[in-house]
């Protein structure tokens, strides 16, 4: 069997695939962050908590109302997205005229409160959520056993990422959105309700986080700090991709997943740090990120 640096190529394929799966989550989460930052200029630190809420809403739907995974995929983003709309209307909308820092502090505080409430209610070890029966089992690919559910995650997240990119960069609605962030007064003068559009955009970004949360629930334990563990990495992804760049966050999300996967084979101890090393290097060479434009 052929080998690369002492690792059999077959094992390497398996690890790359796993990296791609983790990359799917990075891409989904950083996408929501990029949409919110790109269009609202808000650094949404409660994104991790909203991802966690997505997982918990799916768990509660199943255990309290008997609503299964597939409906949860639809209902959860609506519920959590609506909570995002409320937050935007009541709090964030008051901060647009102020420095970025205020939005960051507000959302960070909200994240701590939300996590604290869930921890108080459900403890820190988390709750189990079963894989939907249609997606249990897996395929033997020869070089690895690929659980069906993980395959579904790769496909679903690629579809979601591509659709979001398409809507924002290639449709008329997306053009309005982008125009509204460039020059809100002018767009408003054309009869577009800019504040409502901004509110809905925040709701959409939050809904994306919740969707990622539902998808993560069967793999990871549904626990209050699942978002906090993830959010720091996701912020690094956004910074590497370029703050606010939709395409950047998608491409970086998937590729960092791959790089992290390779690190886990060759030097597992560094797999937590590798993303931050890359971030530091990128910031030194291209301070606006790989896909970002200097303002």
């Amino acid at each position: 069997m052929s080998e690369i640096f002492g690792v059999p190529t077959q094992a390497l394929f398996g690890q790359l695939l796993i990296g791609l799966i983790n990359g799917s989550f990075y891409a989904l989460l950083s996408l929501g962050l990029a949409v919110i930052f790109g269009l609202l200029n808000i650094i949404n630190f409660s994104h991790g908590a909203q991802y966690m809420m997505g997982a918990f809403v799916a768990y509660l739907l199943l255990n309290k109302l008997g609503i299964g995974y597939w409906w949860a995929l639809l209902v959860t983003p609506l519920v959590v997205g609506a909570s995002g709309v409320v937050i935007e209307r009541l709090m964030l909308s008051k901060l647009y005229k102020l420095d970025h820092l205020y939005g960051l502090l507000l959302t960070f505080g909200l994240a701590l409160i939300i996590q604290g409430l869930f921890r108080n209610e459900y403890g820190s070890s988390g709750q189990p959520y079963a894989i939907p029966s249609q997606l249990t089992g897996g395929q033997n690919l020869g070089f690895m056993f690929l659980p069906n559910y993980r395959a579904w995650i790769i496909v679903a997240s690629m579809v979601i990422c591509f659709s979001t990119w398409y809507v924002i960069e290639r449709t008329k609605l997306g053009a309005y959105l982008r125009a509204a962030t460039e020059n809100p007064q002018l767009v408003q003068a054309f009869g577009v309700n800019v504040p409502r559009m901004i509110t809905l955009t925040y709701g959409f970004g939050v809904a994306l986080a919740a969707l990622a949360g539902v998808m993560a629930a069967p793999i990871y334990q549904v626990s209050p700090q699942m978002g906090a563990d993830m959010i720091i990495v996701v912020f690094a992804v956004v910074v590497i991709g370029g703050m606010g760049s939709i395409l950047g966050s998608i491409v970086t999300g998937f590729s960092l997943g791959l790089i992290e996967g390779l690190t886990k084979v060759f030097y597992p101890e560094a797999s937590n740090t590798v993303i931050f090393i890359i971030m530091a290097i990128v910031l030194l060479i291209r301070p606006a990120g790989l896909f970002g434009t200097q303002k």
Binding site: A11, R150, S223, M226, D229, M230, K264, V265, P268, S271
Partner: peptide, 30 residues
């Protein structure tokens, strides 16, 4: 593996490839 971790599938595949009868989890909690 880094502490705390979230995704262990990569490490589990390495354990699987070793063909060892027992995979000893020297970790705790989450």
């Amino acid at each position: 593996h880094p502490f705390p971790g979230t995704d262990f599938s990569s490490f589990l595949l390495q354990a699987q490839a070793s063909k060892a009868k027992i995979i000893g989890l020297a970790n705790a909690g989450g």
